[in-house]
Computed example of a mutant assay.
Amino acid sequence: MSRPVQPVQDYTAACLIMAFVNLLWVFVLIYVLWGLPSVMVLSVVLNAGIDRCTHRTGGAD
């Protein structure tokens, strides 16, 4: 009944590319609605959040 474990495809690159595409269209939408300063503030906030998560999980320096 048990089947041998088979390796699966690595979708990391596809996931990262789609995350970039989604982030890009969100930035473009915010730029169109509220202008460049809003995009810059959002990018700084996202960067701070990513840095905080990285330090919390003990990731790269």
Rank of each mutant, 00 (worst) to 15 (best):
C15D: 06
V39C: 06
Y11T: 01
M18R: 14
A19N: 07
L36P: 12
G35C: 07
P37V: 02
F27D: 05
I17G: 02
N22C: 09
V39P: 02
W34H: 12
V32N: 04
V41W: 08
F20M: 11
V21W: 02
H55W: 07
L16A: 04
C53Q: 06
V39S: 02
R56Q: 13
H55K: 15
N47I: 06
C15L: 12
G49S: 01
C15H: 10
N22W: 15
T57P: 00
L46T: 03
I30P: 01
W34I: 11
L42D: 04
L24M: 12
L33A: 13
T54H: 00
A48R: 09
D51P: 00
N22H: 11
R56S: 00
V45W: 04
L24V: 04
R56Y: 11
Y31W: 15
S38R: 07
P37I: 07
I30A: 12
F20S: 13
S38H: 11
R56M: 10
W25H: 14
R56T: 14
A48K: 05
W34R: 14
A48G: 11
L29Y: 06
R52G: 03
A48N: 05
A14D: 14
V45L: 15
C15N: 06
V41R: 09
Y11Q: 05
F20A: 10
C53M: 12
L29E: 04
A48M: 07
S38F: 13
L42R: 02
W34A: 14
V39D: 02
N22L: 15
L33E: 09
C53L: 09
M40F: 02
I50V: 15
A48V: 04
W25L: 12
T54N: 08
L24K: 13
A19T: 15
L46V: 08
N22S: 13
L46R: 07
V41D: 05
G35Y: 07
P37M: 10
